[in-house]
Design a protein around this nucleic acid. Structure first.
Lengths: 244, 244
DNA sequence: TCCATGAGTTTGATGCGCCTAAAATAATCT
DNA sequence: AGATTATTTTAGGCGCATCAAACTCATGGA
């Protein structure tokens, strides 16, 4: 019985893929650097994003640098190189397609979708990605309102602001809730603060906080922390746009 | 920024789950011991099943023994304990539900299904398992004809024999093709040897090999190796049963 | 202008999980 | 019993994580 042992498979989930960890690091770095509020990608920012010690980040960064996925210089931050960006976007594409799929095909509730996608994103094949994409009709945004990168790595720039940026009296439509935390998402959902909802800012406290908003007939008070996660497109409601 | 570092998450895909590797070992051991042709689960049998060195198996076996998932004694084989069996069946349930789902919901072809399920099975949550199960109408067999274990670990005993067990002249219905190898599956599919197909044994060589069979209007010659993987239910065709 | 200090980062030692090859040992066959 | 075969041990590797100690660097007085 001559065994054919090749399987480094644990490390490379599909054929030629990188480890889950590497994918997670790249995704995190990408999100820090290229989100709508770009911070410098410091070691500790990455560590916090991944709930990992800074020491771990440092060594992974060296490795990613050696792989030319990232540009890293001791004591300064990291930035993503095109190859790394490409991988990050693939993972994010998986994640968002999966979120949408889980919700629309499997009936997942909005707030459960993220955790499941988090695990699946590293594991699905390109075939599965394509089939899901086709089945959903090549969607461009996920259930949270985040844009889904295309296969060639193009991400639509989301044209929205945080709820905190509105002035009292302004009305806008929620197009996205940026938080990952299921509990926060559920809480916001109970307030009807979900994508598509129409919201009006009634009052704003001294330093933007607290924020009093009206959704439908009810009023709610939000802290700045939470409110900034609720992204809105000012003015017209989605419905309005359809009516023309 | 006090980081909350807990994430042994790599090792435990979902909340309280075991590592992928442990799941794979248990699945392999279960399949060896409790398949329709039960062999003793020797170290090398497990090694071969997982494409891993015997040395690795030995150490994993010790560990599984310590975890009381398996009964292992040096130089004798392994057997599964109830707790280990339960886990193996959960994984197998995932696998088979996924195979069926990928085929019927995502349009996967028969022979691609196994590889994708192999990766997903370790990663899906119980919620996903349940949703898929419900969506498929609580199925009892997968696309290969293998029974799907129930949530409480009951597996229907498949009442079928290998094609090699038939005598010349006998006709039977393929109910399962047991192989994992996509290429073999595809080859058998080109011969129309897929679940549901009606097959007649025309001739049998000296030691059961080669086997000449008729499928529809065509005749094919098969080696014993391949033929034994084609499982059949003798006599009636599926269709017959429906007509009553 | 220079340096002490503290926040943030990196190093070095270590651990854990899973793997391997080669050497040692036990079971089995003739 | 001796040869063959299967299994286990030993020693080591790779990936990714941690902690604690050592290091950078920007900064804010003296």
């Amino acid at each position: 019985m001559d065994l054919n042992r090749k399987r480094n498979a644990r490390t490379r989930p599909e054929s030629n893929r990188l480890s889950h960890e590497i994918e997670d690091y790249l995704k995190a770095i990408y999100k820090i650097v290229e989100s709508e509020s770009p911070r410098p990608a410091t070691t500790s920012a990455v560590a916090a994003a991944l709930s990992v010690s800074p020491a771990s980040v440092t060594s992974m960064l060296k490795k990613l640098h050696a792989m030319k996925l990232v540009r890293y210089e001791r004591y300064y931050g990291v930035s993503i190189l095109p190859a790394g960006r490409k991988i990050a976007l693939e993972v994010i594409r998986h994640h968002r397609l999966l979120e949408l799929y889980l919700q629309s095909a499997l009936g997942y509730s909005w707030d459960r979708v993220d955790a499941e996608a988090e695990r699946l994103e590293h594991v699905i094949s390109e075939e599965m990605e394509d089939r899901i994409d086709a089945l959903l009709g090549h969607p461009t945004v996920d259930p949270h309102g985040d844009p889904i990168p295309t296969k060639n790595g193009v991400v639509a720039r989301p044209s929205h602001r945080g709820l905190t940026d509105l002035s009292p009296g302004e009305t806008a439509v929620v197009c996205r809730v940026a938080d990952q935390d299921g509990a926060k998402l559920r809480y916001l959902a109970t307030l009807r603060l979900v994508p598509g909802a129409r919201v009006t800012v009634v009052e704003k406290g001294p330093f933007g906080e607290p924020l009093v908003v009206r959704v439908g007939k009810s009023r709610h008070v939000l802290g700045a922390e939470l409110a900034s996660q609720v992204k809105v497109r000012p003015g017209a409601s989605l419905r309005r746009k359809v009516r023309r």
